Amino acid sequence: MEMMRKSLGAFLAVLMVTVMSNVPQAGAEPMRVTLGTSTQGGGFSLYGTALAEAINAVEPAPMVEPRLTRGTGENLPLLDKGALDIALVQGTSAYEALAGIGQPKSDLKILTAMYSSPGVFAVRGDVQATTIEDLKGKTVVFGTEASGLVVMANYVLDGLGLDMRRDFDAVFVKRAADSPPKVIGGEAVALWGAGVGWPGFVRVSEGPAGARFIGLTPEQIAQIRAKHSFLKPMRLPAGSYAGQSEAVETVGSWNFVLTRADLPEDIAYRLIAAIDKAGPALTEKLDQAAETTPANTAEGAPDRAMLHPGVVRYLTEKGLL
């Protein structure tokens, strides 16, 4: 009997130590996850802030902290170095990195699909241009050079036999917020961008002259995809921007939140679960966030092996894989 009491006492002591070791201590530094976004005024910085707020509202640990960067072009090497835990990456650049196109294959992983990015040109409303051919030789703002949108523009134009710097008076800016004023003020005739609710297009379409959107013909879509098949046929729905009465057909890609290669499985699992739970609140902040779903993550990933193991576990539990 005495031996049983001693054994039970030892067991309870071990149990108490185990429990206490997993309780956050007062004054302890909370677990943090750094989220790389983009320059101020860009679509990624807007989305990243909203995403962090939504996750933190439903999952206080780990705490997600958004960090302004120069966009996709900086986010990828920062993830590779472990200087960021997760980051927003434009779809074309994400595919290049994960598939090893033109570079060593990356070990980064997909946390979640963000939203689709149908690429189009927003032309100032008083400019007489209705096709990409009409923009040749004209001043066009393509954005920040580190942006994944510029990478996508290169693929789209290359598929049409065009070159951004040869066939256009291409303008690049230091901050995404600097792009719309150049079109609104008349320094440029058009702005390249992508997606619904993109801040640059919102500003141009609400400017004094408004905006008209140029996409692609079915023949151009087929021509581009014959050379760059990873670009998918997409549509910018009617009413996405002020004065846009018709849908615009084009090509584009899914944007992703990527993780560093060694992000712990449990952290990725908790993050994707929090994103799923926070979906309605996130969509209230940004219309395009309605596409940030587990189902789109499962469908949008080019290869299951590109998904983080923690995400695979969550999607499997949801019956999506």
Rank of each mutant, 00 (worst) to 15 (best):
Ser93Val: 05
Thr92Glu: 09
Lys81Gln: 13
Ile55Phe: 08
Ala83Pro: 13
Phe121Asn: 12
Leu88Ile: 11
Ala122Trp: 07
Tyr115Gly: 00
Lys105Phe: 08
Ala52Phe: 07
Ile55Ser: 12
Gln90Trp: 11
Thr112Lys: 01
Ala57Thr: 11
Leu111Asn: 06
Pro66Thr: 04
Ile55Tyr: 05
Leu98Ser: 06
Ala50Trp: 02
Lys109Leu: 04
Leu76His: 12
Gln90Val: 10
Ala113Ile: 01
Glu59Phe: 05
Leu79Thr: 06
Glu59Leu: 10
Thr72Phe: 02
Pro104Ile: 05
Asn56Ser: 09
Phe121Ile: 13
Met63Glu: 15
Glu96Thr: 10
Arg70Cys: 12
Gly119Met: 15
Leu79Glu: 01
Leu88Cys: 08
Pro104Trp: 04
Gly73Asn: 07
Gly91Arg: 00
Ser117Ala: 14
Ala54Met: 00
Gln103Ser: 15
Arg67Gly: 11
Thr72Val: 08
Asp85Asn: 02
Gly91Lys: 03
Val58Leu: 01
Pro77Glu: 05
Tyr95Gln: 12
Ala83Leu: 14
Ala52Arg: 09
Gln90Lys: 04
Ala94Cys: 06
Met63Lys: 15
Pro118Ala: 06
Pro62Asn: 04
Asn75Gly: 07
Val64Met: 02
Gly100Tyr: 05
Asn75Trp: 04
Val58Lys: 02
Gly119Gln: 15
Ala87Asp: 05
Ile86Met: 02
Ala113Cys: 10
Val58Asn: 08
Glu53Thr: 13
Gly100His: 06
Gln103Val: 11
Asp107Ser: 08
Gly73Ser: 07
Arg70Gln: 15
Thr112Asp: 06
Ala94His: 02
Val89Pro: 13
Ser117Pro: 10
Ala57Val: 08
Pro66His: 03
Ala61Val: 14
Asp85His: 04
Phe121Thr: 11
Ala113Leu: 01
Ala57Asp: 12
Lys109His: 08
Ile55Trp: 09
Ala97Pro: 11
Ser117Lys: 09
Gly82Ile: 02
Pro77Ile: 03
Ser106Thr: 06
Ala57Phe: 06
Val64Gly: 05
Lys105Gly: 11
Tyr115Trp: 12
Leu78Tyr: 10
Pro118Ile: 01
Leu78Gln: 13
Pro104His: 04
Ser106Asp: 00
Met63Arg: 15
Ser106Met: 04
Ala83Met: 14
Asp107Val: 03
Arg70Asp: 15
Gln90Asp: 12
Tyr115Pro: 10
Pro118His: 01
Phe121Asp: 11
Glu53Lys: 15
Leu51Cys: 15
Gly73Gln: 00
Ile86Gly: 09
Pro104Arg: 07
Arg70Phe: 15
Thr92Ile: 08
Val123Gln: 06
Leu84Ile: 01
